[in-house]
Write a protein that binds this DNA or RNA. Structure first.
Lengths: 237, 237
DNA sequence: ACAAAAGTGTTGTAACTACACCCATGT
DNA sequence: ACATGGGTGTAGTTACAACACTTTTGT
């Protein structure tokens, strides 16, 4: 393809002005009690010292998804998490450096997969209740991400992405309750969850349990895909 | 704000290459029997003569939403339809002119509000079953839009956006059946729809009816907003 | 009068809610 | 032994699916 720019001493020249494009990732984790967000402290202006979502500028040889994945990996070490487009945020004055449009993604990760990061890295988990004022329009993006996460949780088995591979049903319930801010009856929740048929029962031994150990399960993705495909799935919370 | 470019004889110069940004709108209508899509025939290369969604380049003084609304108005005369972000499409080679990233929107309109358009305008409704091969990656975008439309229809009262202000329940049912490609029992559909409490009964006189005239209703948006707000809403199809 | 579409009511079934007791483990 | 949390079963209620007849209107 012939390039769509003219290279000049001042840089890449275009006939009409263009916005720069970035990708940002709102990364959620769950510590067993509260929803957490992974933030990075900015080392440079603008908003130096403020916390923000990991992200960065799109290159000309990658899609915006590839950009999000790459930046996420560079800044947090995370590889291939569950990730979805959230939306594009394009307010004219959202970035003091000029016209920069961002595509936000939301990602769900198992917190265990991020601990042990490089200490020099200014990345930290914040419980949702203690998120500081963020850089740019990231406060706004976070609200949109939360709304979307809750909507998706009602009908998609995304809770599993936030828990360890092996989890107990009470653990899963705590997650649903924390995210949706509602209370489920223990017995009914367990019944309904098992009735979906997308859980595989393993040996009983929840190491994190403080009293009686909970039976461990894992998410049966193949079964889920199959049921989703032929419409036998009953999944609604 | 200081500009983020340097103006040169060759155009607007940036330190790093940038993609151009466009907005495209997938516009759906309903003729009473089948879902329709509004397309525009391209008058210039690339893809001259091929059909595509209305859309165009984002300006530096507008958001991508404002761009979508503006282009839609310029190309079809439509004003303030129901419109939602669909997603961003950024494949590196999706446009032969260079690196152009598009944000797709989907819009729902009452077909009556577009008829009577300028004849010179190369805009036309196509039934979904007769959509030609489209320009760029618009075939792909259309598939994504359809998937999204169906998902949304299950839980949001968006069907009303596609019907005239006054409609009968059988009309509404035909719309649901056409879009979701399933069949509802007439009695149960009517019962469930009325039970939502978001319909206002008007005088009986459906002019388009061919035999017995259907009772006309209109969508009670205030009631819907109220019920949505305090969680009393039961709406699921 | 007949055909086509609209309106309505009941009954069986399946899913959801509410609820109480026993069991395992750590202190 | 006691406190904490995990596991299970039942009964009442509610929503949903299935189904048939009557009414209106155009031909």
């Amino acid at each position: 393809m012939t390039p769509d720019y003219i290279k000049t001493p001042e840089g890449y020249a275009y006939k009409y002005p263009r916005a720069a494009m970035t990708a940002d990732a709102v990364i959620f984790g769950f510590d067993g009690y509260e929803l957490q967000v992974l933030l990075i402290q900015r080392g440079i202006e603008p908003y130096k010292g403020r916390w923000a979502f990991p992200g960065g500028f799109m290159r000309m040889d990658e899609t915006i998804e590839e950009c999000a994945v790459r930046e996420l990996h560079e800044e947090t070490g995370l590889l291939s998490p569950y990730m979805q487009q959230l939306g594009i945020f394009s307010d004219v004055d959202r970035d003091p450096r000029g016209r920069i449009v961002t595509t936000a993604f939301y990602a769900l990760v198992k917190m265990e997969s991020v601990v042990g990061q490089d200490d020099a890295m200014d990345a930290r988990w914040f419980p949702l209740s203690a998120v500081p004022a963020l850089a740019f329009d990231h406060d706004h993006i976070l609200r949109v991400a939360l709304k979307r996460l809750r909507e998706d949780l009602h009908f998609r088995p995304i809770g599993f992405e936030l828990l360890p591979q092996k989890f107990s049903i009470p653990q899963l319930q705590r997650l649903y309750e924390a995210l949706l801010e509602i209370h489920f009856d223990r017995r009914n929740f367990q019944k309904k969850m098992l009735a979906t048929g997308i859980l595989i029962e393993l040996g009983e031994k929840d190491p994190t349990a403080r009293h009686r150990a909970g039976t461990l399960y894992s998410f049966n993705k193949e079964q889920y895909d199959k049921m989703k495909h032929d419409g036998t799935l009953r999944l609604e919370f």
